[in-house]
């Protein structure tokens, strides 16, 4: 087990966003969490990245370590969990190169940085062409590439992605998911949350369905894709 989440509760003020959800991720998997707007998908990822506080009975274990012992920056630098946030959130005032460099700020395994950079450029050759350009001037597709590339540079164990398809043209969405498959093949486990359930279930091996802060269904992707309820609610009948 790479990541095990038990009874995860998150509240924003008096509003409970997650009502004690459970899920597991095995090493090497691609897992997706699907659900509507406001179901708690992003909150789940923020809890893993330790940027929102979790309830007292929640537990999260990553590679045998208690995730709750780590602060947000240490989750990345010590455990190797990288997070591609919703809306990319690149540093638009920095160049492509600087965005990639910055992600390695606290990495201890500095000897591996050059090969990781090569991996990023082999998956996204466009980034190498744009290396000196300001991140804020990239096209939407290129920005998403940089967001994923930057995450790859920050940690390689587990990559969590918040709506990687958002704002991309259909063809670019496919390219992005193909790239994620390549990253997965190079040894990075992937957890992604998506509103585009059809696409997510096509690429992930397993999925969880989140509804108003609770996991209502889970299973292999093809099972979920054939489930009448899922089809009705998320796949447009």
């Amino acid at each position: 087990m790479l990541l095990s989440v038990k009874n995860l509760e998150v509240s924003y003020g008096n509003i409970k966003a997650l009502h004690g959800i459970n899920f597991d991720i095995e090493e090497g998997e691609i897992v997706c969490i699907i659900g509507a707007n406001g179901a708690g998908k992003s909150t789940t990822l923020r809890a893993i990245s330790r940027v929102v506080p979790v309830g007292p009975d929640s537990s999260m274990t990553f590679m045998g370590q208690n995730l709750l012992d780590y602060q947000a920056d240490k989750v990345v630098s010590k455990l190797g969990i990288s997070h591609v946030p919703e809306g990319r959130r690149l540093f638009g005032n920095l160049t492509v190169k600087e965005n990639l460099q910055l992600a390695t700020f606290a990495r201890k395994d500095r000897e591996k940085i050059p090969s990781d950079l090569e991996l990023v450029f082999s998956i996204f050759p466009r980034l190498e062409e744009r290396i000196t350009q300001m991140a804020g001037t990239l096209s939407g597709g290129e920005q998403q590439m940089l967001a994923v590339g930057r995450a790859l540079m920050s940690g390689r164990k587990l990559m969590i992605l918040d709506e990687p398809s958002m704002g991309l043209a259909p063809l670019l969405m496919l390219d992005m998911f193909e790239a994620l498959k390549k990253i997965n093949a190079e040894g990075t486990t992937i957890l992604l949350v998506e509103q585009n359930a059809r696409l997510a279930l096509r690429f992930a091996q397993r999925g969880y369905v989140l509804e108003t802060g609770e996991v209502v269904l889970s299973g292999p992707s093809d099972e979920l894709a054939n489930n009448p309820e899922v089809q009705k609610a998320y796949l447009g009948g």
């Binding site: 990245s49 940027v51 602060q71 947000a72 920056d73 240490k74 990345v76 630098s77 990288s82 997070h83 946030p85 959130r89 540093f91 638009g92 005032n93 920095l94 600087e98 460099q101 910055l102 992600a103 390695t104 700020f105 606290a106 990495r107 930057r150 920050s154 940690g155």
Partner: peptide, 23 residues
């Protein structure tokens, strides 16, 4: 890299920890 982190923080405070950088 510290200066770069300062510039990054000025642009998007919340994302800086996700880069493994202690705020």
């Amino acid at each position: 890299k510290w200066g770069m982190a300062m510039r990054a923080m000025a642009y998007d405070f919340a994302v800086v920890p996700l880069m493994g950088i202690p705020l």
